[in-house]
Design a protein around this nucleic acid. Structure first.
Lengths: 322, 322
DNA sequence: TCGTTATATGTCAGTTCTGCTATGCCTCCC
DNA sequence: GGGAGGCATAGCAGAACTGACATATAACGA
């Protein structure tokens, strides 16, 4: 007596059958369903009989004033509605992913962009597309690149590193932000003008894996100076700031950190040879996801705003290469 | 930039497309999917392109060692799987409803059958088809009939009432169970042999709407007796039992109540004219649901057991236990 | 009893679907 | 640089699907 559980995926059942059944149920009659679907009545009747034949049960009892669902009809209508709802969701999801209304963008960030550019861009993105999930992963360039090529990251944001040896990456400059030497307000070397005058103080340097560190080492080297003997290596920006405020330490930090913090002092020793271009590093092969594109466009917009806000100072034009 | 949310129910998308996509995803390649579906490879390729054209996005990136889902592919595959799962459930549900593996049966019950027949039948039904939900509604025949014809009940179980005036009902006798006069063990009238001897005691009678009440009145009438002057009307079996045990009241009850309760005493005054047939009342028009049919078949089986058990040895109509 | 309302059935034409075979074009791997 | 594996494309024939029209049938109500 127990029949086998009906394979509805063998091709006989069509989606139109589901639409048909739910429409008949909603309209309460074959005729009304027909006009609602812009069909002639026999087409609807036949469609209904097809479904009933496929299922092997009667879905509606035909009355003289329309049709009413049977026990099976009630059950099947539920499932038919569920399927259609699922397909509607699928459509919305695909459309959302395609136009960047939904989706996820994962941004790897170096120190440079995290202070102003990234928060502003996220805020702007969220204002326009609340459906996009943003994930931020902090790290060094070397630790983020494998995640980028592996597909875990959509883009890396930060001071642009040389990538001549990485043809699978491409870079997109966003704005220029000089690196400044920084100390607390009231630091004894506040008015120093030469790098040599700062050697005696303790320094906070970036980790050796970072390109900023390498560039700083070159700065000392070109000036014929050794690295400062008293060194702390640190990437945690909160730690750096506390150290700066609590001691006489000196650090090299992106300009936007300093200029948004009244307790920090910009020293008058420029670092002209340090690359100042901040931008996004993207995978060369893979195309950006729609959500990633939207994020990138906001990054570009916010970067433009930063640059124009900064044009009062004409001294920072071209990045220095080597 | 925001596209309209993709109508996937306009007839272009087919269920086979969904199967196609999930199979390709599972098999990791068009070719493997093709052989898994017993198709040639071009058919699969074309089907995939159809879906992609319908959705307007690429679902798989074609590689040289198969295909891998894109962002959209991942999303769409989820929904496609959900749809297929829903249809599988629909198939199981319909099949279950059709063969009585699932579903609901709602039984209206009068006093008579509730003690032994119904519990046993429910137990047997549940043992065979745990998926069937059983709902029991107690009431008088008159109150249950509208629910039966209205579709709220599948059948009414109990002492059969005359229904000559109801052509929209039909009855199915199940077994015979006499109505006995009952009192507590040790009742002063324990050995009375005539109805007249019992008139002086207080009686519990069924409500006036019930047919048993009418038949009892006829019994008194035929014996030339008035109704007992001291009367309580009650249908609650628990109340009746307590009253019987705690007082000298007399009641007319189905035999199976008395014979399964050692504290109750069967009086030696028979009621031969009271109908003894217990059965099911069914709607004449509507067909029984599958679950209803299964319930009815168990009722018939259990009724047969009761009848044979009673012809062999009337004393051990063992209760189902509780 | 006759019209009204609704569903069922038969027939038919155009279109789409669905499968196939044959073949082309990549990319990776010897 | 030539297989081998794997996806894309073209063309085609038969099956099915999908729709319409005309008409039959059933139930209800005035």
């Amino acid at each position: 007596m127990i029949s086998r559980p009906l394979d509805l995926l063998n091709g006989r059942l069509k989606l139109r059958h589901l639409v048909l059944v739910t429409t008949i149920a909603e309209q309460g009659g074959v005729l009304r369903a027909a006009e609602h679907l812009h069909l002639a009545q026999p087409a609807v009747t036949r469609g209904l009989r097809e479904v009933e034949q496929i299922l092997g049960v009667e879905l509606f009892t035909r009355g003289s004033r329309g049709v009413t669902p049977t026990l099976f009809g009630e059950a099947f209508i539920d499932h038919a509605r569920a399927v259609q709802a699922e397909l509607r969701r699928a459509g919305e999801r695909i459309a959302g992913l395609a136009d960047g209304t939904a989706g996820t963008v994962t941004v790897g960030t170096l120190l440079a962009a995290t202070n102003v550019l990234l928060p502003r861009s996220i805020a702007a993105l969220k204002a326009e597309r609340p459906g996009i999930t943003v994930i931020v992963k902090e790290g060094t360039f070397d630790s983020l690149v494998p995640q980028l090529t592996g597909g875990d990251l959509d883009l890396i944001l930060g001071r642009l590193n040389p990538i001549e040896d990485r043809p699978d990456l491409r870079q997109l400059p966003l704005y220029n932000e000089p690196v400044l030497l920084v100390a607390r307000a009231g630091h004894p070397a506040a008015h120093a003008r030469a790098l040599a005058d700062l050697l005696a103080y303790p320094w906070i340097l970036p980790l050796e894996q970072t390109s900023l560190r390498r560039e700083l080492e070159q700065v000392f080297h070109r000036n014929g100076l050794p690295l400062p003997p008293d060194r702390t290596e640190c990437t945690s920006i909160l730690t750096i700031r506390s150290l700066l405020l609590g001691t006489d330490m000196i650090a090299a930090l992106p300009a936007l950190f300093v200029r948004t913090d009244p307790q920090l002092l910009e020293l008058q020793v420029p670092l002209p040879s340090v690359r100042r271009s901040v931008g996004a590093t993207l995978p060369g092969a893979r195309a950006l996801t729609p959500a990633g594109k939207v994020m990138l466009s906001h990054l570009q917009q916010q970067a433009r705003d930063l640059d124009t806000g900064e044009t009062g100072d004409p001294s920072d034009a071209a990045p220095v290469g080597d």
